[in-house]
Write a protein that binds this DNA or RNA. Structure first.
Lengths: 148, 148
DNA sequence: GACAACTAAATTGTGCACAATCTAGTTACG
DNA sequence: CGTAACTAGATTGTGCACAATTTAGTTGTC
């Protein structure tokens, strides 16, 4: 029956999403090793290379991560000399994250990463656009479902 | 230029894949709480409900996880009374994982999960099929890339 | 039969990810 | 004002995920 077909497909999809996420992680891991960055750290750096300073809250919104993940992550990045953190003078609850010169300098070395990732996916531009759109729609739907 | 367009799209895709994976995780987390299972544990149970016993190695192949992840995961599941583990008599290097009656009994309660997930994705059947195919192709390409 | 090469799990150490809780600072309302 | 409600981060505890190493068992070759 149709029901059973649906369920099998759903299961395979979920395996597939996780397999893809881990495969992507593996490629990033290999590419970022030389830079001394993990994939989540690289994502954080991409936000910082774009605009700076950002609060932990803003970073969390951009990356969909909470302080329980970001606090230790940023501490490791601070220990590595990539960023520094300071309380906002305007609102002492907030912590502003800034790049150090070393962190800013890493940008040029990281510039080749996206193209390599793009090549590794083996997808064409239109496929990438379509995939992104589908995932975005699905994510929005999943977010809605988890609230209800 | 085209190059820059590619890079932006690649970046957005990577954020998107991670956002999707976490959103999916969130829905599973909510659905599986009553069953006392995490999402990875649920995936392991799905394999076991299908065929049993399986070795840790076979489970790792099916789930794309290594013993460093599976050993503690299976210990927690054993502590929860869902599975038991025993050395294979035929090959003493292997550990066979079997369901306990409690673990087997959980299946009926878990049967409604896939349909709820399917509904939560908000995707139609054809979309799901297409998405799965794209992800599978991309994952294979990524796996290939990480070796080179 | 002995020894090298291989395989399966487990272990150790590092780094996410999130729930729950805590502290400190801010805002709103009476 | 002054206190209640809210917000930002940090902390604690649990559970993946993987690299690297270790231990135990198996297989292949001479």
């Amino acid at each position: 029956m149709l029901g059973r077909v649906k369920l099998l497909l759903e299961n395979q999809l979920c395996f597939e999403v996780h397999a893809t996420a881990r495969a992507l992680d593996g490629v990033y891991r290999a590419l970022l090793r030389d830079l001394g960055l993990t994939y989540p750290q690289y994502l954080a750096m991409m936000v910082l290379w774009e605009r700076e300073p950002v609060t932990v809250k803003e970073l969390g919104t951009a990356l969909r991560l909470d302080s329980g993940t970001l606090s230790p992550l940023l501490k490791r990045m601070e220990a590595a000399g990539l960023v520094r953190r300071e309380r906002s003078a305007a609102d002492e609850r907030s912590v502003l994250v800034r790049l150090t010169p070393a962190g800013a300098g890493l940008r040029s070395r990281a510039e080749e990463v996206p193209e390599k990732i793009y090549a590794a996916t083996g997808l064409g531009l239109e496929e990438l656009v379509a995939l992104k759109a589908t995932l975005r729609r699905m994510t929005a739907s999943l977010d809605e479902a988890v609230l209800a």
